[in-house]
Design a protein around this nucleic acid. Sequence first.
DNA 1: GAGGGTTTTGCAACCGGTTGCAAAACAAAA
DNA 2: TTTTGTTTTGCAACCGGTTGCAAAACCCTC
Lengths: 333, 333
Amino acid sequence: MAITLGDVAARAGVSRSAVSRTFTDGASVSQKTRSKVEKAAQELGYAPSALASALSTGRTKLIGLVSNNFHNPIFLQVFDLFTRLLQERGLRPLLVNLSGEPDPEQSVRMLQQYSVDGVIIASSTLSPEFAQAFKDAGLPVVHSFGRWSTSPNVNVVGIDNVAGGRMAAMALIERGYKNIAFLGGPETATSTFDRRKGFYETINSQFHINYSESFAASYSFDAGRQEMQRLLSHGEPAQAYFCGDDVLSIGAISALKDAGLHVPEDVGIIGLNNMQIAGWENISLTTIHQPVKEIIQSSIELVVSVINEPDRHPEARVFPLRLIERSTLGTRP
Amino acid sequence: MAITLGDVAARAGVSRSAVSRTFTDGASVSQKTRSKVEKAAQELGYAPSALASALSTGRTKLIGLVSNNFHNPIFLQVFDLFTRLLQERGLRPLLVNLSGEPDPEQSVRMLQQYSVDGVIIASSTLSPEFAQAFKDAGLPVVHSFGRWSTSPNVNVVGIDNVAGGRMAAMALIERGYKNIAFLGGPETATSTFDRRKGFYETINSQFHINYSESFAASYSFDAGRQEMQRLLSHGEPAQAYFCGDDVLSIGAISALKDAGLHVPEDVGIIGLNNMQIAGWENISLTTIHQPVKEIIQSSIELVVSVINEPDRHPEARVFPLRLIERSTLGTRP
DNA sequence: GAGGGTTTTGCAACCGGTTGCAAAACAAAA
DNA sequence: TTTTGTTTTGCAACCGGTTGCAAAACCCTC
């Protein structure tokens, strides 16, 4: 059926070890046998089995990529970057879709069975305990877009969501908004919790500002739109909203426009992420930039480091946020 | 380090075969040893190595999921469905990002190395020859969203893009448009070619209709937007456009609106796909529905069949399209 | 051509499972 | 109790690679 080491060895007239060695770099093979082997391999169309190799070396070059967010368009970019950057390093992403599976147990087991070299959890909604479960199982793990902590138990790469909330609050306060609301993502998401926290605390430290909040069912256009529609059906909207994410913002704006309201004249909106569409002229969303590419790059570097150095101390890598001023915030005197 | 068969066998006081058999269903084990083994496995936290098992059985339960479209939001849904449905069958998606790698050779090699049981190519832009390369390498393959043919050499599941083009043309002709254009996806994509073909032929069979065409750089919002901007900068737009895809449509509409034009009063637009956003009130895109879920479900069933029955004759599964009338087409007397 | 050091090579055991085969254990019938 | 038939069990070989170790081959120098 498939071509094996032995076949190539026989054809080249050398031992199986010789063949193995020509395909593992750093091994000692003479130029002569090397070319004999390469010729034979070429002729037979030999491709070494990664599985068999993994069995003896203990390295599969497989990285479990665990995610539960398949609705936020930003995740297309996330998957694109992860897969591309992993491939560039000769690593293969084994995708795990967590949707509706809140327990890490099953995923841990599955990834253990495939002896993945490491795991990257790409999610802004899962708790650090979720990632911890992978670590406890002995899997090198990095939580991308996860909750940051000064004494992390598990490796995290992302942003400071509390700071993001503060930044949004400052932007709204500076512009003179007095009636301010938070329109968050799902209430159970750590990112929602943290962004709300920073936002609320900053707003609350000011006098004469009216605060209210509500939450969308998920990080998606539809959920943002629906939540804003619900708010509008219950009375006057706030003067300005910090939406927990750009997709929520764009969904909310579409609901506002449908209701005949103007942004930013009637209602101000600030988002978070700075996804590509946010920059379009006809959307032109004022938002907070999350450095997605840098986070992903760093996550991969980190997981590779952990693989090579298992006893490494867990670390948190926090990337800075940047306010992107566009046209969905105005000023109130 | 990790727990193996042997460890469990020793603890349970049985042979290694007995342990193996308790974990492969259909094997002959007495209730007594089974429970002994299960107890020991439980206590040790044993998880059988899929790699080792794959080495002897020849089955990895790995499915290569090959794609090159990481910009079209519809693919988020595609990935979500593929990963979910594969997982439900105990299969694992090994993701391959093709972006910028036009040659199948490398991917074929890589998937061979990991002995994937099968391959699904999820792309509307790649040619049948691309899929063929996987088949030639002996990998069971299904091309999802690929080009259909009456005598397929390789399994395809998708829609009839030529028919889609015809359907769009009919919709525009019926509404009395006389100056009609095609705004396609990348010119090299098979789906672009076929949609254009059906569209052009139908338009051309009519008298007194003015036809023109142009192509966006990729299937993405941005590309659609840019191409429409370019068209507008070169003169009067057509009365109506068939955009090769919903994302192109929405991008094009955003460019039109920016230019102060109204849809459908000034320009009519019809898309293809019926992605979720197309249904929003403030977009309300008239489009042609592509049954994504059915295609994916069927693709998975097909690849599983091919795996179990390697000499199966290749087949083409074509799903019907449906015109979704919303509000981006008007009528011209 | 012998002696010494270095590189290359093959043997054989191992990675963690699976499975055909024959022996052992068990159950039922005589 | 013996015979026959059916399950269950363990042995050992195998899947396709890797790698430590000792022997073989090579290269230089004297």
